[in-house]
Write a protein that binds this DNA or RNA. Structure first.
Lengths: 194, 194
DNA sequence: CGGCTCATGTAACCAGTTACATGATTAG
DNA sequence: CTAATCATGTAACTGGTTACATGAGCCG
């Protein structure tokens, strides 16, 4: 269900076509909620059917049209309702930790290789988060910038600060993962001669 | 697919019935990989079919029997192969962060309520992780203890240390979440008069 | 005219969730 | 005898993944 709220969140910035969404998704909401195109288009149709979005046919080229989705009042109300509803506690389900608990079944060199891959992944992820955070701070992030034009300074301040808050959480999480990976290297060295 | 490896991991400790598994699951592997009963039983059947487990019929009461699952050599080999195979990078998908990025759409009091709930959840989760970590350290954790009887001291040391390593990661993560939640309270107070 | 981007999906599958179903055994 | 525990699931559904499918428009 969160996908639909990720989509509404994105569309509060500005109306977009499915294509626009699937492109800008990856550089914004996808940092907290990833989804592939094949899930986005059908969901947009369902949301239109449920009255959360209005699809406006916009001409495209000579004869083509494209659908531009606008959040309806009902959609916004639904979004706010979801925002204020309690989260159900997330189940833990992380293969990295499952593996780590049983690293004694694997070859030490294979463990190091795992750790190196995770390290690379998290370093890149962290760098991306920090870049994005910077564009939020200076308000050049395209999706955010689009939304800010509709807000007064007080509202803009809130929107920006909460987004930065979310990214700060993601950044802290990435750093925690990286510190854990560092500890992993040290542990493998300690346990297997070196 | 990770469920099946969580199950093999658990069964390396000692052979168990589906019922044993579904009970002890929650106090061990479920900390890294949650699964309900309704997913466990069918998966055990599939794993037996695939030759990863042997099901031994054990008498139970006067006429009943129960199935005790043993990991086969093929199962262990498959587990090791999985252990050494690269993880595919996990997609971010966390509703708490999605909401946080858009807290400006919610009432400040509703936001505080959200934060309080998450705080309670993570505090309890953290306490549970720390209790479990302590039982790993003193080797009284039942699943671990069962496995240790089959290992020499050197192997036992590895098994224990890696399990503690995994829990240290989970604990660090929980603390990071709690720190982020604290920052959330401070931010709401700052942004909404107080 | 050829290749990129814009545009919109479908189909088959797999994993996980929720709710329900049923019966035997054992402890008090 | 009754309640708790042991035992084992099925069914319907939701959400997410992977792979594929197709065509119009735009730029050089």
């Amino acid at each position: 269900m969160s996908l639909r709220y990720a989509l509404i969140a994105l569309l509060t910035g500005r109306p977009m076509t499915g294509y626009d969404i699937s492109k800008s998704f990856s550089s914004s909401v996808a940092h907290v909620w990833h989804a592939p195109d094949s899930q986005i288009y059908p969901e947009l149709n369902r949301m239109e059917r449920d009255g959360l979005l209005d699809a406006v046919e916009v001409p495209w080229g000579k004869k083509g049209t494209k659908k531009e989705y606008h959040v309806t009042d009902a959609g916004l109300a639904d979004f706010r309702r979801w925002m204020e509803s309690p989260l159900k506690p997330q189940r833990q389900r992380d293969p990295a930790y499952l593996k780590a608990a049983y690293y004694d079944f694997a070859d030490p060199e294979a463990v190091r290789e795992q750790l190196r891959r995770q390290q690379t992944y998290w370093e890149e992820h962290l760098a991306m988060l920090e870049r994005t955070r910077a564009t939020l701070l200076d308000r050049t992030h395209p999706t955010l910038a689009a939304r800010l034009t509709k807000l007064d300074e007080r509202e803009a301040e809130l929107a920006v600060r909460y987004k930065i808050y979310a990214y700060d959480g993601l950044i802290a999480r990435a750093r925690t993962e990286l510190a854990w990976i560092e500890d992993g290297f040290a542990l493998v060295d300690e346990l297997h001669d070196s």
